[in-house]
C-alpha cells in the first residue's frame, strides 16, 4: 500500500514539524538531558552514514568508526594546530571522511566483498586507531586533543544549547540530503547495485562509480558527525573510536531498520536513550544491550521502522526493501 498524495503532503509537513518543535527543547530540559540529546543527534548521523553503505548499497563495510575518528581528528587537528574556527572544520572533516570512504570503496572495487570487506574495513579502523596513538606530534597520542574554547558570532561554543542548534541544523540538512540522494537517479542505481550488481552493469550503469559515490557519501556524513563529536566532548581521544563504537552503531542500524532513513533515526534514539536510562544498573549494559539486539533480531527483523510502517503508510520509504 503506497501513501496517497494527501498523506505525502502530511509527511512533508511532519518532516519539518519535528525539528521545528525541537527548537524549543533547550528551554525545557536541563543541561544533562541536552547533552544526551546532542549525543543522539551525532549518532543519528553516524547511523545514517553507516546504513547508507550496509543497508542501501548492501555492502558489509565496517569502516564507519574509521570515518568517525578521521572526522573528529581532522576537526580537532585543524582547530588546535591550524587555528581554524571549529565551524570551518566541519566541511573539512566531512571531506576527510569522504576520502576514507574512497579508500574503503577501492577495496570493494578490488573484488573484496562480503566478509572480506567486513574484515578489511575492521582492520582499517583499528589501524587508524593505532595511528592516533602513535602519531603523537599531531594527534596528541594517548592524551588526546583538547578543543580550544571558542565563540561563534558571540555565542559560546561550550554551551550545550548553542551546540544543540548547530547539531540540529546539520542533522536536518544531512538527513534531507540523504533522502534526496536516495530518491535521485544515483540513489536508484545504488539500490539496483544492491539487488543485482551484474544486471545493473548490463543496463549500462557505471556500477563502480556508483559504489564509490555511496562510500564517499557515507564517509562524508560520518566525518561530519566526527566533527560534531569533537565539539560535543571537547576532547578527542583514541579510545573513543574503537570496536565498541562500531558495534553500537551497527546495532543502531539493525535495530532501527536496515536501509531505512527513518530506521537510522529510530535506532540512534533508542539505543542512546535506553542505555542512558539504564545508567542506574552499572555493569549490566553489555547484557541489556545484547538482549535487546537479540530480541529485535528475532521479533522485529525489519527493525523498529517496520513498526511505524505498519501503523501508517506515510512511513513507507519506497527505496526500502520489504
Amino acid at each position: 500500500m503506497m501513501p496517497t498524495s494527501a498523506q505525502l503532503r502530511f509527511r512533508t509537513i511532519l518532516f519539518w514539524l519535528v525539528p521545528a518543535l525541537m527548537l524549543a527543547v533547550p528551554m525545557v530540559v536541563n543541561p544533562y538531558v541536552l547533552f544526551i540529546i546532542n549525543g543522539i543527534l551525532i549518532f543519528v548521523l553516524i547511523t545514517l552514514g553507516f546504513n547508507f553503505v550496509i543497508g542501501n548499497l548492501g555492502q558489509l563495510a565496517f569502516a564507519n568508526t574509521a570515518f568517525f575518528g578521521i572526522g573528529a581528528y581532522s576537526s580537532a587537528i585543524a582547530t588546535t594546530s591550524l587555528g581554524l574556527p571549529w565551524i570551518a572544520t566541519i566541511p573539512l572533516a566531512g571531506l576527510a571522511g569522504a576520502l576514507g570512504g574512497f579508500l574503503a570503496s577501492a577495496a570493494a572495487l578490488r573484488g573484496i566483498r562480503l566478509y572480506y570487506l567486513a574484515i578489511i574495513t575492521l582492520a582499517f579502523g583499528e589501524l587508524m586507531r593505532w595511528i592516533y596513538v602513535h602519531a603523537k606530534s599531531i594527534t596528541g597520542g594517548t592524551d588526546g586533543l583538547s578543543m580550544p574554547r571558542e565563540t561563534l558570532l558571540g555565542f559560546s561554543l561550550t554551551d550545550d544549547r548553542v551546540k544543540f542548534y548547530i547539531f540540529l541544523v546539520l542533522t536536518v540538512v544531512l538527513v534531507k540530503a540523504t533522502l534526496n540522494l536516495l530518491r535521485s537517479h544515483i540513489g536508484r542505481s545504488i539500490m539496483a547495485v544492491r539487488e543485482n550488481e551484474v544486471a545493473t552493469a548490463s543496463l549500462g550503469i557505471p556500477t563502480s562509480r556508483i559504489i564509490v559515490i555511496a562510500f564517499m557519501w557515507s564517509g562524508f556524513v560520518v566525518g561530519c558527525a566526527g566533527s560534531l563529536f569533537a565539539l560535543h566532548t571537547a576532547y578527542v581521544f583514541p579510545e573513543s573510536f574503537g570496536m565498541l563504537q562500531l558495534i553500537v552503531s551497527f546495532a543502531m542500524v539493525i535495530v532501527g531498520g536496515l536501509g531505512s532513513v527513518l530506521g537510522s533515526i529510530l535506532g540512534a534514539v533508542v539505543l542512546t536513550a535506553l542505555p542512558e536510562y539504564l545508567r542506574s544498573f552499572p555493569g549490566m549494559e553489555e547484557l541489556f544491550f545484547g538482549l535487546i539486539v537479540i530480541a529485535v533480531l528475532l521479533l522485529l527483523p525489519q527493525g523498529l521502522a517496520s513498526l511505524l510502517r505498519r501503523l501508517s503508510p506515510i512511513f513507507i520509504e519506497r527505496y526500502y526493501r520489504e
Binding site: 550496509i54 558489509l60 562480503l114 567486513a118 558495534i247 551497527f250 546495532a251 539493525i254 536496515l258 555493569g283 549490566m284 549494559e285 553489555e286 547484557l287 541489556f288 544491550f289 545484547g290 538482549l291 539486539v293 537479540i294 533480531l297 528475532l298 527483523p301
Partner: peptide, 26 residues
C-alpha cells in the same frame, strides 16, 4: 533469522557475545 539479510547473522553473533561477556562481567 534465516532468510533475513546476511548481516543479521553478524549482529546476532555479536549480541550473543555481548551477553556472554556481560554475564562474565557481572
Amino acid at each position: 533469522i534465516r532468510g533475513g539479510p546476511h548481516i543479521g547473522y553478524a549482529l546476532m553473533c555479536i549480541a550473543v557475545g555481548y551477553v556472554l561477556r556481560g554475564i562474565a562481567r557481572i
